[in-house]
Design a protein around this nucleic acid. Structure first.
Length: 719
DNA sequence: CTAATAAGATAACCC
DNA sequence: ATCTTATTAG
């Protein structure tokens, strides 16, 4: 489509205005459908933003309608109208509401390409995504379209961006800026320590577990409410522990402050504070990042939305992309309302809706539309697909998990034999351990697979051990890391470690505290001397440091774990990762914020590349496969039994179901095994009995028509 | 005070 | 099944 401002824009509905000699449109309607703002929104408009390479912006009718002059990529024919408008949008706020599979990523990638091709400095583009993997992937795609310049785009997660910013402006904080980022389990250790320290063990009242306390504290931060409210709303059974929680929370804050520690939430909170309190920082950022894009906007919480707003406070040049139907991170404080609030936050913003689905065949889409139709709150989007379907999604009930696993293995092998690569098939599930039974079967049949989600590489004990050494050498006040390092040694338990830590950190003796005379010479004296030698002798690149620590740690590893061989491999992986880093702090930073996926388990099979994907639904976000198997579609698994109490939680589970099904391009298999509950399975579930199919299935009256039910017979399956 | 052993509880999603 | 906590012997 050729956009002709004179013809396509309804001139009665926008205000033209002039500023510093340039012409702008503040609002308008294009072909009667979209809100519009900004004179530089499309090529050809005479009030171009002159910041750009003006040549590239001129819409050239002489050269034919499809190619923007100066651009190698034929944006107009490669994108649909809505995508095209989003891509060539230049300045001013833009909200793209993108249904599942509607080419949201495509729009982002093309916009990066378009901006870079127009001569924008890639470093002035900031792409905030949900995972670093996602941003790298987008840049890579843009780079293959344009050139290497696209790799220079600034990008990352909100958390990594916050960490970067905080380190850069560290002089504004009281300490020298070397802080350590702690993950959830570190935070949990701290809470446990504090519970002991505060002498709360003797309390009569029931005290929530460290994990629960942390959860409450974190939720309050991410939702922007008080801990009391969270307690009342979500943990009523602990409401009498409020006072204790407050005390622990206070102690936790001061503990972190003393040790220069920051948890995930602190990164956002401090980043927001930095932006709020320092106008000069905001201005500098606005100048540096002229084009800001936020992916998965429906999963941002209020802190993130606020950070994004402040980054662009000076120029409002921000594009956010999201889909309220795919918001699945409420447990982390995500507010899909952010999408709805966006136009209010940025008055006059352009809104573009992407409704054409390019991923799934129509029968799959019909089902997913019906699923989301059940949602309490929905914001109308009618997805349509041009892809005719081969068949309806398959629904299959099996008598147990084992049968479910066997069916999948059999079907996967059939499909592979018919030429579909394993990597084009995925098995999705609600919780990490739902795939256990299947994994056993896959191993038996030598089907290689890679699992995403669940336990992370950096959560393995041995990896944490090694990171503790690194953290100590990076930040000698890191009490938690010291604790781990010290108790690793024979003869040093929690008590001994505490006294050393007191000497090292509180007594400010540094490493010398390790060879403190106060500590009588015992059999551990020798070990401590060696530890002292190790730590004070650490120098060089992160990889060199790591190797020094490894040679020290190896005997400890072998003494502690029977399966040290496997674990040693992980540590070598870690060293390989470290090779790419010049400074230790960056390495630790990245490991905590963006842990590498644990090595794909290549079990049997010939090619290393091709493996079946197993993934939690959360980790499958944004991805797609030709064939998707959704397993354990059973009440108590999906929806999870934890989510069956509150209405909002249940709604989120429904969206999860929706997200899972919309990952499928050509075929979708829904499996409901009967699971026998030996013990109570979550809250109040009957202690004995069999699971029922998911209520989401039961609730849909047209489920039968939209799917095809299979039953298992003696030799396999048939209709 | 530590380390080994026994009994008991709990089990999600993720930066 | 795995991780935590309580108990007890060294």
């Amino acid at each position: 489509m050729l956009i002709d401002p004179e013809r396509d824009i309804d001139c009665r509905q926008y205000d033209k205005y002039e500023e510093k000699g340039r012409h702008y449109v503040s609002k308008g309607v294009l072909n009667g459908s979209i809100a519009w703002r900004g004179g530089a929104c499309f090529p050809g408009w005479q009030g171009e933003d002159l910041l750009m390479d003006s040549d590239a912006m001129v819409h050239s009718r002489e050269r034919g309608p499809s190619l923007l002059s100066g651009h190698r990529i034929d944006y107009r024919s490669e994108l649909n109208d809505q995508q095209f408008r989003a891509v060539i949008h230049r300045d001013g706020p833009l909200l793209v509401v993108a249904g599942a599979g509607s080419g949201k990523t495509r729009a982002l990638v093309y916009r990066v390409a378009y901006l870079v091709e127009s001569g924008i400095d890639p470093k002035s583009i900031l792409l905030l995504t949900f995972t670093r993997k996602a941003s790298r992937e987008m840049m890579r795609r843009a780079a293959t379209m344009v050139d290497e310049r696209c790799m220079k785009v600034s990008g990352g997660t909100f958390h990594s961006f916050a960490a970067f910013l905080l380190r850069r402006h560290s002089h504004r904080r009281s300490h020298d800026g070397s802080f350590t980022i702690i993950d959830r389990s570190d935070a949990q250790d701290i809470i446990k320590l504090l519970l002991g320290r505060l002498g709360l063990k003797e309390e009569r009242r029931r005290i929530p577990q460290a994990k629960t306390i942390l959860d409450i504290v974190s939720r309050a931060v991410n939702r922007g409410t008080s801990r009391g409210d969270i307690l009342n709303d979500e943990y009523p059974h602990f409401s009498e522990a409020e006072e204790i929680i407050e005390r622990v929370a206070g102690a936790y804050e001061s503990f972190k402050a003393e040790g220069f520690l920051m948890d995930y939430d602190d990164l956002l909170v401090e980043c927001l504070r930095l932006l709020r309190d320092n106008e000069d920082v905001r201005i500098a950022l606005s100048e540096r990042y002229r084009y800001v894009m936020v992916d998965e906007y429906q999963d941002t919480n209020w802190l993130q939305a606020e950070i994004a707003r402040l980054i662009v406070a000076e120029h409002h040049s921000i594009m956010v992309v999201g889909d309220d139907s795919q918001s699945i991170y409420a447990f982390r404080g995500a507010r899909f309302e952010n999408i709805l609030d966006f136009p209010r936050l940025f008055p006059g913003c352009a809104v573009i809706t992407l409704e054409q689905n390019y991923r799934s065949a129509q029968p799959i889409l019909s089902l997913t539309n019906a699923i989301i139709e059940q949602a309490q709150k929905k914001y109308s989007k009618h997805l349509f697909s041009g892809i005719a379907g081969d068949g309806k999604p398959v629904y299959l009930r099996t008598s147990n998990e084992r049968e479910q696993a066997r069916f999948i293995c059999q079907r996967v092998m059939e499909l592979r034999d018919s030429g579909l690569p394993l990597s084009q098939m995925a098995v999705l599930f609600r919780s990490g351990w739902h795939s256990n039974a299947l994994e056993v079967e896959l191993v038996n049949r030598f089907i290689p697979y890679a699992k995403f989600g669940g336990l992370r590489f950096t959560e393995a004990a041995h990896v944490k051990d090694l990171m503790a050494f690194l953290r100590v050498s990076c930040n000698p006040s890191d009490t938690i890391a010291w604790f781990r390092c010290l108790t690793l040694h024979e003869g040093i338990g929690s008590r001994g470690a505490q006294s050393f830590i007191a000497s090292i950190v509180t007594g400010k003796k540094g490493y010398a505290g390790l060879i403190d005379e106060r500590v009588p010479s015992r059999k551990n004296a020798q070990a401590l001397l060696r530890l002292y030698d190790l730590l004070s002798g650490l120098e060089g690149s992160p990889a060199q440091i790591l190797r020094m620590i490894l040679s020290y740690y190896r005997p400890l590893l072998e003494a502690t774990y029977d399966d040290y061989h496997r674990r040693w491999n992980d540590l070598e992986t870690l060293t390989r990762i470290a090779e790419g880093y010049e400074n230790l702090e960056d390495l630790l930073n990245d490991l905590t914020l963006e842990p590498p996926e644990s090595d794909p388990q290549n079990l049997g099979g010939e090619g290393e590349q091709d493996h079946l994907v197993l993934s939690t639904i959360h980790s499958a976000k944004g991805l797609e496969w030709n064939t998707v198997f959704l397993i354990n579609l059973v009440d108590g698994c999906l929806p999870s039994s934890y989510a069956c109490v509150r209405e909002e939680d249940l709604e989120e589970e429904r969206r999860l179901f929706y997200v899972a099904c919309t990952r499928a391009a050509r075929s979708l298999y829904l499996l409901s095994p009967e699971i026998e509950y030996s013990r109570s399975y979550g809250s109040g579930a009957s202690s004995l009995g069999f699971s029922k199919p998911s209520r989401f299935v039961e609730e849909m009256d047209n489920f039968r028509e939209l799917t095809e039910e299979w039953v298992i017979d003696r030799n396999g399956t048939c209709r």
